[in-house]
Design a protein around this nucleic acid. Sequence first.
DNA 1: CTGAAAGCGCTTACAG
DNA 2: CTGAAAGCGCTTACAG
Lengths: 426, 426
Amino acid sequence: MRDHGGSATSVTSAAPRCSGRATSVPRCPLVITLRSAQKVTTASRGLARWCQLPLPSSSSIRIDDDADASSEGGALVPTSRDVAKLAGVSQSTVSYVLSGKRPISPETRKRVEGAIAQLTFQPNAGARALASQRTQVIGLVAPFGVTSDHSGLLPFIETIARSVRDHDHDLLLVTNDEGADGLVRVAGRRIVDALVVMEVEARDERIPVAAGLDVPVILIGVPDERAGLPCVDLDFHAAGALAVAELAAVGCRSAAVLGYSSAEIDRGINYVPRFLEGVHAGAARLGLPLTVVSPVELERASVDAALDEVLSVESDEGELPGLVLPHTEGVAGVLRALADRGLVPGRHLGVVAMSTDAAAEEFTTPLTNVSLEPRDVSRRAVETLFRLLEAPADAEAPGIELVQPRLTRRASTALPPALAAAQLTA
Amino acid sequence: MRDHGGSATSVTSAAPRCSGRATSVPRCPLVITLRSAQKVTTASRGLARWCQLPLPSSSSIRIDDDADASSEGGALVPTSRDVAKLAGVSQSTVSYVLSGKRPISPETRKRVEGAIAQLTFQPNAGARALASQRTQVIGLVAPFGVTSDHSGLLPFIETIARSVRDHDHDLLLVTNDEGADGLVRVAGRRIVDALVVMEVEARDERIPVAAGLDVPVILIGVPDERAGLPCVDLDFHAAGALAVAELAAVGCRSAAVLGYSSAEIDRGINYVPRFLEGVHAGAARLGLPLTVVSPVELERASVDAALDEVLSVESDEGELPGLVLPHTEGVAGVLRALADRGLVPGRHLGVVAMSTDAAAEEFTTPLTNVSLEPRDVSRRAVETLFRLLEAPADAEAPGIELVQPRLTRRASTALPPALAAAQLTA
DNA sequence: CTGAAAGCGCTTACAG
DNA sequence: CTGAAAGCGCTTACAG
């Protein structure tokens, strides 16, 4: 047993003796005796302060700390061996009671559970991982610091963390700074059982590395070459088509897309072309004239230029095109630029944006949006990952799962009676 | 060694034999022989597909897979014992080369490092944790789902994750759904070595629990009763004082605070009173008349009412009060309401908001802000936590660390020449 | 400067 | 339905 930092303090643990290693102050019933006043050290001073006791100058103090008393500074942690002894069963029985991997008689179970409760036993995760080859931890590779804004990231992290907990696992955050090495590290050292890789790029250096790991990996996003790895993502093609279909439905005679920022395009994020293809396909099917301006940067000047270009293409009847705003971060800037021109979404022109519902409702004119469904995508990713984790090695590997986007009509496509009427009679 | 799912496949690993457990396909040099064509199973089919080989009908195939080839589907992972054998040293020497905990001769080191590289050895985290009683994982208890918006949360998570990696540890995310039980679980099972608890409330049920754990805990935020736990937070008192001082400096003759939302107040977040106290103290020192309206909800009606109240208190000279907006989430709504009234920040009245610099610059009129400094706070928290983790048991326990806020003047307090001049001559 | 060996606290065939 | 024991892959006194 380790000394408590000063020879003045001696610790004697009373029965039942725990077999665990002492970190500092045992959690078992104990007696602390301060032997000599002269030799009182910082450690014993600290301890006394902790216990809210005056530091005695030349007497001994007694602390009766019961088993589940929570005093900081370390504890002699009970093991499953202690539980077994107390319950009068073998250690394996304790393990089986915990895991449910074999039938246990009701009486035995009761005794074991009682002992567990009495000792406030909690299984050691490291020992369990070593013996079972399962860490019960999932790694999440999150794209911190790649782009400036990441407000959209949080719902993913949150939902993934919760879903993983629903499967009795924990979530380890792997920042993207480490790149592919991070994947190799957490998988190779068996820190995690499986990985979720977020925001994969079209040609992502992490893909071949991830495919070579001997733990299951799921991608959020769809790279050009997925190397056999399962992917989950929003159906951005459908999202693009949905956006133009809405504009057509409310009577817009043409559509214009104010594209992504060049930062986003340069990163080769695969949803950019997928969304634009969807827009094109949708417009073509509906016979809607389409203009795409891309890239559009977040800066005011770039937004103004793009808007000028788009608004100059008005139709013969002086009608403005319906606007599709795929770039969530840029939406606020475009709306501001519209306001500067005295243009009100839903009155002078239709606007559909890719954004969360919450963000869409925040604007002066609530926006019709196509939701990014981060929660659905995250949940699906985790479900698939656990199916993979539990699947026999010969199971069918899942492919690409696409979550269908959802459009919610709000004021920004509530077009004027004239247009709406035209639409109704059409 | 585990069977590969079908009796038709036998796997023989060539020297050097690895001592690790086979999950599926060994990573060591190996020979795979398909014995009988009739008995080809799904498993062996899957294997063949993987290897990009046609499935032979009645012959045996040979695959020479070298040690660092990365083929999915499992691997016979090398252990430090394999490294030791290959390097001709003892297992303990391998461990010491890795940990640097005792001097190693250059030649020995070279041989060991060579063997590690050759086998692409990575130490098993579970085994290491079990033997060393250190998991190298820090837990972060993040307040997911407590409030609606959490964009402000991300910089904390990001910075904490990075800082923790700088100390060669990983970050485990503990969602707040589990409440105090989550702390007990990850600490008690030794899933983490230490904890960061975010957004602590004034009377937080997690505090006494956290204080009873036998792992170091650091709080971000300052509860009423910190139970001896170290805290790191922004100095909200100073922030409040800084905000009114700025308004006074640019010539405002009175100040008004549009307070927090009742949701935030109800949660008993400790920075609410601290900030307001700072505002009061600052205003008192400067002799600035002060109005505080609180709560102010995020809803338009509430903002309008608060603004009406505040703007009616104009001075004899018809001057409007300077506005302090402590509630980051509510800033956008207040600005919109001001715009509706034709009031421009920095022209008709001064405005100072609590917000990140990035957010402050996003508004039509860039805002003078007092930064929340999430990165500084996070970094300090992690530094203190590791000091705690490495400190001897008798070390001095740290108390409350307050990070000083920083004010950046922008257009919203660039008041009209008349006022500025008045201020200069004063 | 290095090695042999015990031990960390579980799980899981194996045996009954 | 239960137990005895091997073993997971490291670290760390102990010994030289």
